[in-house]
Design a protein around this nucleic acid. Structure first.
Lengths: 120, 120, 120, 120
DNA sequence: GTGGTCTAGACCACT
DNA sequence: GTGGTCTAGACCACA
């Protein structure tokens, strides 16, 4: 994984994990890699890995059993909420930006369809 | 103006000025506020104001005449290019994020229309 | 039983057992559950159960007969002493905390009566 | 300052600062020591100092201006809320503990008055 | 083995 | 100078 310098590594890893939670690679209640494993997989320092879990736990997306490991939250509702929360946030930010650029709704749709076609 | 802690202040001010260039409040060739004025208007540190102009000049959106001040670029083409460049970049980023959230195209459209309605 | 993450599980189980010793559910000299049983009842790791008895024995609240099991101490005096010891310690800690919060004695009494009413 | 091994240092420092916020040594809006200063004063690592502010900010008791420093929150209401929150939490915990020890309300009052007298 | 904390020290962007 | 992040590596309590 390649890290962008503009964003803290721990946030990039965090998003990558949230991604796996939402697309089903990490199912509710399942054990997540230990901090040390995470550090190895993502080639980051154990401290940074720790920070990732700290943030995820704070968002209610995982929980910790001491000496046992870290687990994906069992509350599926929480996961759905997070998806909606992020989707709305991103949408709002995106639209605000386009508005700031004085891009009309028609142009906006054009850009999106263009990119959608390009990616599909 | 309220600054978000997640983004450097100079970038937020920068975007605000670009916004004014694109919506016509700052027309091509017109004189921009001095660094000192900018600092006062936006309630930022003069160093930060300086940084803003530095970035804008680097993007070719303004230029400086020694002893005269800073001026919006006269090349309207440059402004349009900037708009398109940013719009595409934002669109691409937005779609990538939604993809990472496993949001389908249908849901995506729903979120957008929702927010568009809310803001209009 | 629900475990708080802020305190080691073995201490929580320990307190629960001391509670039973003081309220009479576990009478002096009576046999306590085996380590294995304890692990089952409290849904904890056998190692943790072992640790619980280790701590209790160290406090003189129980003793072990090789091959026979673990028994509540027969010295009733020891139980009373423990109660007083803990009560004083908790009181002192509590008052220190309230002092740190700059809570006056009047307010302190108010909080206590409030909680006492709520629980009764 | 002497640190207890039973509690993370960052939490002990945190409580010490909250104490100063509540007793008026740190007034709302005032600048707090820089991370480096804090590290020197409390004889801890800069990282640990950082953690302290991170936790305090998360609780809404201070906020950060990048490059400017960390400041006590201006919302006095937040401070009061925190005091009440902690006072109630401590009271509840204390009473639960006494209940677990099968200490009667009369005995409880006795212990408290005893300690109050001893400290005054 | 697992998470939690801590130290030491470095680099960077922002003001 | 300030906060924010990151690496390296260590120690400890807990299960």
């Amino acid at each position: 994984m390649q890290y962008k310098p503009s964003l803290p590594i721990y946030q990039q890893v965090e998003m990558d994990i949230i991604k796996d939670m939402l697309n089903g690679k990490l199912s509710p209640g399942s054990k997540m890699p230990s901090g040390r494993e995470l550090a190895l997989v993502y080639k980051i320092n154990p401290n940074t890995a720790q920070r990732v879990y700290q943030e995820l736990e704070h968002k209610g997306l995982c929980y910790t059993k001491r000496g046992m490991g870290t687990f994906v939250t069992e509350e599926e509702e929480r996961l759905k909420t997070e998806r909606i929360h992020l989707a709305k946030e991103y949408s709002r930010e995106f639209l605000q930006r386009m508005k700031d650029l004085s891009v009309s709704k028609e142009q906006l749709r054009k850009y999106l369809e263009e990119e959608l076609d390009a990616s599909s």
